[in-house]
Every structure is written in C-alpha cells, then in structure tokens.
Write a protein that binds this DNA or RNA. Structure first.
Lengths: 147, 147
DNA sequence: CTATACTATGATAATGATTTTCAAATTCAC
DNA sequence: GTGAATTTGAAAATCATTATCATAGTATAG
C-alpha cells in the first residue's frame, strides 16, 4: 500500500503535480474500500478519518487515478458512477436489477472474440465494457417463490 | 409503420393508456430516425413537424417505448443517453473515442458464452451490453499519419 | 530557513441531463 | 355532449458532474 502510494506520487510528480495529505487519504481509502464505490461512498469513508476533506477533492483524485490507469469508472445506468481498482486483472460484471448486487467474472474466450470482431471492422480497441443484467441467484429464487 | 403504431397503441390501451397525437408523432419520428439519437435530436426532429411538442413528451414517450420493449436506452459514457430501435436483431457496439462514430456488430459466439457465464454464476440474465471503445478505421489511420 | 512560485483544497456555484409538477387540453366510454 | 380519466407543454425540481475562486499547502532555489 505504501509502495503503491509512493509509485503514484512519483507519477504525479512526473506530470508536474505535488503531494497532498487529502489526496493520499482518498487514494488509501479507495484501495481499501470494496469495489464499485460511488463518489459519495468514498467521500463518506474519507471523512471518517479526516472531516475536512471535500467532495471536490475526492472527485478530482478519482479522475486523476482514472487518468493514470489505477482506477476504472463504471456506470451501470442507474445512479452515479462507480469506481473500482484497476490493479487486478480485467473482468466484466453481472449486475442484479433487483438488489443491485454486482459480481465479477472473467472469460478469456469472450475477450479474444472481441479482439477478432474489432479487427474485422478495422477498429483499434482500447477498452471494452461488458455488463450482463438480470437477477442474481438470490433474487431469482425469491422471484420463483412468489409465483 | 402504421401497423407498428397500431400494435403499440393496443399495448398502451392494455395498460390503461390513451392515444395521443404528439406521442404518435414522436414514435413515428423515432422509428424513422437513424439509430443512436439523443432526446434532443428526437425533439428537434419532431418539432419540424409539430412545433408544439415539448421535450417532456419526447422524454416520456421514449421511456414508454423502452418499457414496452420497443426501444433501448444506450449510454456510451459521454453526453446524454441515446435511443435505438429494439425491433432489429440484437447487436453490440463499437464506439470511436475520437469521432464518436458508433457502429454495430453481431457475434453469436459471444452471446452464447455470456449465457454460459451467467448460468455458471446462477444468474438469470435479461439483457446485456457490450461496448468496445477505441478508434474507428478512419481515426486509427489519421492517428498513424500524425506520427 | 525564507521567499517565491507553483499546485491542491474546500466551499460553493454553474452546468447538464433527467425527472417531476401542475394546470390546461385531450381522449374515451357512456 | 358529459364526466372521468390520461396526456400535454412549460417550467421547476432534482441529481450528478464539473468549474470557479480565494485560501492553504508544497516544493524548490537561494
């Protein structure tokens, strides 16, 4: 964690930025918090430690982390954007439309088919997003019982 | 087109709704307009015919079409949501991050892998969204030349 | 250590898009 | 037509995101 923060600070310095306590706190909270947190979630979490951190700082820090490639912005079409660490290997999402649960999966065969499709279209892919919406196991079972 | 409108009106009646001229115009314009139109696009297009149609009516009509399954809401993470007809067979999107071009593709093998993944997770899928972001052929070539 | 020149911050305001409200108009069944 | 309902258009409210600005903090050169 400390070495990660150091690495990020180096990159920030490299693009002409300076360190800051608030930002470091946001970064630490972000990597310690579960995935799919909203800006509001993160702001709340940071403020538990340091009451004086403003929403704008959390916002700017997350934009910065996204720019540097450490965070990914997610948008599942409902409320606000969510953020997740980009340190782990790539994965896609299963989103429950009933309870909001977001789970993750990897499927290399899908990835490679995507590459193929892009190539066929002369398209140079930089990233993709695959979200499957529906009912998670729990909600699917609950739904069945009701009928 | 007329029969489509009739069918939609029947469904609206079935859920206790009434017809309306403005709504019919929105629906017609929507199906005649190219894909990936925003609410603003649609409002403009409708107003060419009928100056008095309000943005709210376009908004409500599109929500209704989405609810009935005739339209799909798209959100590519940039500006406002876009709408496309859901009458054609399912497809996914290639989104150019440079010029904004959105093209479509179908890949049944990806679809079936998605089914498999969902099943493995005990997940009951209702829909999915796969967007590949990157550079379209044109922009990829333009980028190469610059270097 | 201090001065200086910058970046970062927090509060707040501005923006942009979506959604709601409400009185008036329209539709439909009778 | 009449009455009970839905729909409409304009405007306001909401919600999330982004920009602004004066102040505070950080790095660096001397």
């Amino acid at each position: 964690m400390d070495s990660l923060l150091k690495r990020i600070n180096l990159e920030i310095a490299a693009i002409g930025g300076k360190r800051s306590r608030s930002r470091a706190q946001v970064i630490e909270v972000f990597f310690r918090t579960g995935p799919h947190a909203t800006l509001e979630d993160l702001t709340h979490a940071v403020r538990k430690r340091n009451r004086s951190v403003g929403y704008a700082t959390v916002y700017r820090t997350m934009k910065l982390l996204a720019k540097l490639g450490y965070a990914k912005e997610l948008d599942f079409g409902d409320g606000p954007k969510r953020y997740e660490s980009n340190l782990e290997s790539h994965h896609d999402h299963l989103v429950c439309q009933e309870c909001g649960l977001v789970s993750e999966f990897q499927e290399p065969r899908i990835e490679s088919l995507q590459e193929q499709v892009a190539k066929q279209h002369g398209f140079l892919p930089t990233m993709h997003r695959l979200d499957i919406y529906g009912l998670c196991r729990q909600c699917a079972l609950a739904g069945k019982k009701e009928n």
